[in-house]
Design a binder for these strands. Structure first.
Lengths: 202, 202
DNA sequence: CTGATTTTACAGCGATCGCTAAAGAAAGTG
DNA sequence: CACTTTCTTTAGCGATCGCTGTAAAATCAG
């Protein structure tokens, strides 16, 4: 069943096509990327796209999911791999500065910028990305709560405010990157941002 | 010439129509707002809109210009009216927290969020708002340079990095507001953000 | 009043949107 | 070979996009 290969084989590389779709959505957003743009970049015709990926919405979801496990994976990785919570957030911001300005792909973060302007009929796409960002804030807060429980943050530290703050800084860095900020500028922003981290309870 | 009033008078309030257009563009962005949406909210027909405002692009420009002198005026006001530069930036962030979550209008900042996803044919609109944001960063930097010259910042303060940092924080706060953050949360973010301000040269 | 001027509502332009029916082309199966 | 399955291309669907031609309606000047 799973490996039966009957019928005419697909004549294009599905993964390569997905990468092209990712680059387009990343740069121009969901509504700013048309099926015509996608098929041109993928080198296929509309029916092939629909047969391989469903519809535009399903393709976008697949793109975003793949983005989270590749380009966007540095976030949770940085928080998880650094033992010291403060070092984890610092590393996350540093890596954001590098990733958001990588000339190998569009600037900024796809999840942050790909669906900010929603017309009524694409409100669900906007809501999807919003949920991912909200989950990210929650992830920050959980990590900060964990840090406090382990004594890496003062007992009275405002973990909720810190979580929203770090999310805002990351989103702001993404926007700045799209507006043309350099890697160096964003690295310095990342270091400035870490001044908000409270002193440990001594 | 200027006050000649010949012909049929306009049957709608141009200012009120402009406010309606502002609210729509603010919430749904440039591309997410159609002429049909606009005429419905304004209570007029397409020819009336085109006669009064030119085309969609001109209407949007007028909306953004008006936004800058009303809703968005708190930024330069805060920097200009506080004598102490640090107090000026702190006040700007505090007022952003309030304005971006004001239930009387859409969340966040129109200049920041109304044209982030640009399809090729609207790249000029995107570029227009981008220029306004870049000018804002430059304004921050000028104010910081002024602060350093007057001894309110250390001689070795990185004014460029601070300017990009504050711009990123403001943009992040706008995004967080659109994602549902509360006024209180953003106020606490504003206070945390001020920790990046360098100590005065003693 | 008549005539000139401007705005109005109605209808629809060409272009593009996301998407798909139809039929031919390329593979495996017998 | 014939048959089934799947992908391909061609062509175009209905809907919406920004925008406008046309003519009636409403005000002015004389």
């Amino acid at each position: 069943m799973t490996t039966t290969k009957r019928g005419r084989p697909r004549s294009f590389d599905r993964e390569a096509a997905l990468v092209q779709a990712t680059l387009l959505f990343w740069q121009h957003g969901y509504e700013g990327t048309s099926i015509s743009d996608l098929t041109a970049a993928m080198g296929i015709s509309p029916p092939s796209l629909y047969a391989a990926f469903g519809d535009k919405r399903a393709l976008f979801t697949e793109v975003v999911d793949r983005y989270g496990t590749t380009f966007g994976a540095f976030m949770e990785d940085a928080l998880a791999r650094e033992r010291d919570p403060r070092a984890g957030f610092a590393r996350m911001l540093e890596e954001a500065a590098v990733s958001y300005t990588d000339p190998g792909h569009p600037a900024g973060c796809l999840v942050i910028s790909a669906a900010t302007n929603y017309s009524p009929q694409t409100a669900d796409v906007e809501q999807d990305l919003r949920a991912r960002r909200t989950a990210n804030v929650g992830s920050f807060e959980a990590r900060l709560e964990d840090a406090r429980a382990r004594g890496a943050l003062p007992e009275d530290a405002d973990t909720r405010a810190l979580a929203v703050y770090f999310a805002a800084v990351v989103q702001g860095m993404s926007q700045q990157a799209r507006d043309g900020a350099s890697t160096q500028e964003l690295r310095r922003v990342a270091r400035l941002a870490m001044n908000a981290w409270p002193e440990p309870p001594a």
